[in-house]
C-alpha cells in the first residue's frame, strides 16, 4: 500500500503577471499582479518609454514555466 504524501498534493500557488500597454506610444511591459488590477483597466502608472501616465491592462495570466527540451 503506497502511502499518501501530502507534499505531492500541495501545488504551489502561482501569482499571475499583469501585462500593460501604453495608450499613447503602445509600449508593452509587465509586472507582478497587484490587487485591484483587472483586464482593460486604465492605470495611472508612468510609461517607461514616453513618460505619459496612462497604461492599459491588456492581460492578466500565469506565465507558464519554460518547458525542458
Amino acid at each position: 500500500m503506497e502511502g499518501f504524501q501530502p507534499s505531492k498534493m500541495l501545488q504551489k500557488y502561482m501569482s499571475p503577471i499583469t501585462f500593460l500597454t501604453c495608450t499613447s506610444c503602445g509600449t508593452e511591459n509587465s509586472r507582478a499582479f497587484k490587487e485591484d488590477d483587472y483586464v482593460f483597466k486604465r492605470t495611472n502608472e508612468v510609461c517607461p518609454k514616453c513618460g505619459k501616465n496612462e497604461l492599459l491592462i491588456v492581460g492578466i495570466y500565469v506565465k507558464e514555466k519554460e518547458k525542458k527540451t
Partner: peptide
C-alpha cells in the same frame, strides 16, 4: 476529490485578490 479540493484551495487565492 483531492484534486478538486486542491483546485478550490488555489481558487481561493484568485477570488481573494480578484484575479481572472
Amino acid at each position: 476529490l483531492m484534486e478538486i479540493t486542491e483546485a478550490l484551495r488555489l481558487a481561493s487565492y484568485a477570488f481573494a485578490y480578484g484575479q481572472p
